[in-house]
């Protein structure tokens, strides 16, 4: 047995040579950090390293779930922000796809699509910078407009009542066009005969949209929604990190930003790793469940 395998390794040595660099990369850059997760159960000290640091069991998790770290606040913010994005950006992408589909001029359709994808290619450092300039209380155009109509200057990014609206609005701006691609593709796969016979039956445009277009893409919507729920603990680190500040922590601090501050600002490596492990562990379970549901529905999910 073993010698047969060995022989086939020799036979396919070229393939293994091709595989090796990526495999080595995975083991070093992805699996070694997984081993490093052990420090969530230890009191990590740099001089001792991961293995020799003393075990403390679930102490860091106790500390995390303790009221003093505001764990409920972080978890609530994460789920609330994800949920809002699911309603507005995810839902908005479907509405946008339906609207674009109703456009008859091909040129207008194409231009609209091309413009809508554009912000997807910008990083949150750039989008955050643009927002800082436009929302600035001293010289941003938004506050200038508010003043023009006699309103009070609003500190959008430092006001916890405004912050979430800004997060959702900028997420829509960045992602709604990109999100609509998959639905437009699904719509383009609908059999045109369905529409023709509906027209003969006297169905108007609105009727066609609700009776043909929407039901035809319901599967795709369901799959995307389930996958979205599976990643509910990813509230968007890049976005929040570039826009938040201590004045809005109450509504803006999420699991990822907390892990960043605990680890790299306060040097509490073990606590930070406990947060990441909680997030990745729960996230993994959610994705597995989501995938199971998609498969149950008779579709091929992620695998």
């Amino acid at each position: 047995m073993g010698s047969v395998t060995w022989k086939s390794y020799v036979k396919y040595k070229f393939l293994f040579l091709l595989l090796l660099p990526a495999l080595a990369y995975m083991i070093i850059f992805n699996y070694a950090p997984m081993y490093g997760v052990l420090i969530a159960f230890k009191d990590y000290s740099f001089t001792k390293g991961v293995w020799a640091s003393p075990w403390v069991g679930f102490e860091h998790f106790h500390q995390l779930f303790n009221a003093s770290t505001n764990f409920t606040r972080i978890l609530r913010n994460t789920v609330v922000i994800s949920g809002l994005k699911m309603i507005f950006t995810f839902g908005g992408a479907i509405v946008l796809a339906l609207f674009i589909n109703e456009i008859r001029s091909t040129a207008f359709k194409r231009i609209t699509q091309n413009i809508s994808y554009l912000p997807h290619f910008l990083s949150w450092v750039i989008i955050g910078s643009i927002m800082m300039e436009m929302l600035s209380p001293s010289n941003g155009v938004v506050n200038k407009i508010i003043e023009l109509f006699g309103g009070q200057t609003i500190y959008f990014l430092a006001d916890k009542y405004w912050f979430l609206s800004i997060i959702v609005a900028s997420d829509i701006w960045q992602s709604i066009g990109w999100g609509s691609i998959i639905y437009l593709a699904a719509i383009s796969g609908i059999d045109p005969q369905l529409y023709d016979s509906a027209k003969i039956d006297g169905a108007g445009r609105a009727r066609q949209m609700f009776s043909i277009t929407l039901p035809s893409i319901a599967n795709v919507i369901a799959i995307m929604l389930i996958l979205q729920v599976g990643s509910i603990l990813n509230a968007g680190f890049d976005q929040i990190f570039n826009l938040y500040n201590f004045k809005v922590f109450e509504v803006a601090d999420i699991l990822d930003t907390y892990a960043y501050r605990a680890g790299l600002e306060q040097g509490n490596y073990s606590l930070s790793t406990a947060v990441s492990l909680f997030k990745n562990g729960v996230g993994l379970v959610l994705v597995l469940i989501a995938n199971k549901i998609v498969n149950r529905m008779g579709h091929t999910g992620l695998w």
């Binding site: 086939s8 850059f29 992805n30 699996y31 070694a32 997760v37 947060v275």
Partner: peptide, 30 residues
């Protein structure tokens, strides 16, 4: 290549990284 020995194991090694990671600090320490 379907005839690559232990293909399933190697593929799985890659797929797992799509769903689980060590997180910020373990990567930083690495």
């Amino acid at each position: 290549k379907k005839y690559l020995p232990h293909l399933k194991i190697y593929t799985t090694i890659f797929v797992i990284t799509m769903f689980f990671g060590g997180g910020l600090i373990p990567s930083y320490l690495l």
